[in-house]
């Protein structure tokens, strides 16, 4: 009896540990929305999302420039990271000799482990300077600089998930293709990659989620100018940068403070949708394979 009781007690405690993540998510949602929804008593949702002007001193809060900047930076990062990442994943899954793999895999893990603020520092000193001087731009602090640094940061995500799904493609597909007289590359391009496409897509969506939510690497290189960017060489200010830069200035309980949390809601929703889509996609890919 006593043993039964103590086991039940332990099970209860461990159960609480297990649902802790979910409790935190609920708390995040509650506190983010409690503060953020307040903003919509000053600005209606449509004006907030589509408004061009963000001026805390006039209490005008339109986030369009930040949203567009976030999209720009992310699209740029994906354009750069997907080809390099996918090809590296194919290399690891299909071509790499074991010895080379033993070097490349830990290197990619390390790339994922470098703190984002260090990426920012590197981006500011190397990439921004390169864009300004070599590409002869008025300012190097640009969407492009942000895209490049984000691309490097999301490479590990794209590579490791894509590689996993490429490895899960049944060996029989490859053998079947080779037995029909296909070259190795033809088998990769026409059979293996298409068969892994759902996992690859999931990795890209996850990469988008990481890129759009990244703060420190971006804030140091994009210039932080509150206007709608029209080209990759323009400066911009993504959602994350605004939150970081303006939290310190906003008085708790002011419309400005609530509006920053509203930006947080926006960001949170975008990233959560992307993550859930990616998870569903990954699950589906696994079931079919």
């Amino acid at each position: 009896m006593v043993r039964r009781l103590s086991e039940d007690m332990v099970k209860g405690i461990l159960g609480i540990c297990a649902i802790f993540s979910i409790i935190i998510i609920f708390l995040i949602i509650i506190f983010l929305f409690r503060e953020g929804l307040e903003a919509f008593s000053y600005t209606n949702v449509i004006d907030f999302v589509l408004g061009r002007e963000w001026n805390p001193s006039k209490e005008t809060f339109g986030a369009a420039a930040f949203i567009v900047s976030s999209l720009f930076v992310t699209v740029g990062a994906i354009i750069i990271a997907v080809p390099v990442g996918l090809l590296t994943a194919i290399f690891l899954a299909e071509l790499s000799p074991q010895r080379v793999r033993e070097v490349v895999k830990p290197a990619i893990e390390l790339l994922a482990g470098i703190p984002s603020v260090i990426y920012g520092l590197f981006g500011l000193i190397v990439i921004v300077k390169y864009i300004r001087i070599t590409l002869d731009q008025p300012t190097g602090e640009s969407i492009l600089a942000g895209s490049i640094i984000l691309a490097i940061m999301i490479l590990p995500t794209i590579i490791s998930i894509s590689e996993d799904s490429l490895r899960q493609v049944p060996r029989a597909y490859k053998e079947g293709s080779l037995a029909l007289g296909a070259t190795h590359w033809e088998s990769i391009a026409r059979i293996i990659v298409p068969s892994a496409s759902s996992g690859i897509l999931a990795s890209i969506i996850l990469g988008v989620g990481r890129a759009i939510g990244e703060t420190m690497a971006v804030v140091l290189v994009v210039g932080n100018v509150e206007k709608l960017p029209t080209s990759f060489f323009d400066s911009g200010e993504p959602l994350t940068s605004t939150i970081l830069l303006e939290m310190g200035e906003a008085a708790v309980g002011s419309p400005h403070y609530y509006s920053i949390f509203a930006l947080g809601i926006l960001l949170f929703l975008i990233v959560m949708v992307l993550n859930i889509v990616s998870n569903v996609w990954l699950g589906r890919g696994l079931k079919r394979g």
Binding site: P170, G176, L178, L180
Partner: peptide
């Protein structure tokens, strides 16, 4: 080898059609 496999075809133990 590619041409060899074109001349000498193979059918495997487990049916392995491509997912198309």
């Amino acid at each position: 080898v590619v041409n060899l496999r074109k001349r000498v075809g193979m059918v495997f133990q487990k049916p392995n059609p491509f997912p198309m």
